[in-house]
Design a protein around this nucleic acid. Sequence first.
DNA 1: TATAAAATTGCAAATGATTTGCAAATGCAA
DNA 2: TTGCATTTGCAAATCATTTGCAATTTTATA
Lengths: 136, 136
Amino acid sequence: MIQKQYRTKWKDSIIEYLENHADQSFSAADIYADLKGQEASINLTTVYRNLEKLTDSGKLMKYKAAGEESYRYQYIEPYGNCQEHIHMQCRVCGKLFHLECGFMKELTGHLLEHHGFVLEGQGSMLSGLCERCSGK
Amino acid sequence: MIQKQYRTKWKDSIIEYLENHADQSFSAADIYADLKGQEASINLTTVYRNLEKLTDSGKLMKYKAAGEESYRYQYIEPYGNCQEHIHMQCRVCGKLFHLECGFMKELTGHLLEHHGFVLEGQGSMLSGLCERCSGK
DNA sequence: TATAAAATTGCAAATGATTTGCAAATGCAA
DNA sequence: TTGCATTTGCAAATCATTTGCAATTTTATA
């Protein structure tokens, strides 16, 4: 069942962080590092618990990048349903991209017809270099 | 530097396991469970250390599946360079498939031209249902 | 405004997979 | 057979994440 939400100082801080990093990906440790500087310091457990709720409510995408041992999160406000497209992640900057274009149909079609594979957006992640990072 | 390799009982057992499961994926715990039944029982640490060496030597692919917290391994003997193609993994049985076909070129081409994204095989993993598991 | 129920927090301890240190055992070339 | 390098076993360490529980805070409502 969906739980009532109380508004708290830390929840506000975290949401503010998300909005300021809407186009980046981050880990629980990143948020913690950013928010613990404040007078009263945030607790890592609190960060995890809030990220979990935000993920459950669909505001965040939580994923594990290739080769990393900790989870990364990214704000998905502008995107509809992350189950219906796959994602690409930059190996260098960690940024997440949503493959929301007509090519998705070609991709799912090819995989199904030639490989009998039913592609699912959830958990599908391509790795590589984004335009910015490959340009350097 | 490359290290000399000594042949041992457990190394042989593990390689035998790989060959008997060449078309499946498995975790360190799977191997451990299978081999600890023997008279003298294998040690989990030994499993990990051998899998690491096999991965380094290119005989195994090591990857973390979407939503799982432990690594999976799969024998890659029959395939050339796993850096040059992406992989698909069945969410149900964990089996790994190599997307080694002409479509790879279309995929990399599309991502580069329309998204400025340089796809890398290493770390790219699509998730979904394989023919066998979706058929059921 | 006071109150009680429900949600949130902090802290320490638990998890679980994987890794590491170190001494003992084993493999192998000479 | 000897000596040295590699492997192994075991216990302890890691590391990110989760959990238990008591204390604190929020919010609806009396």
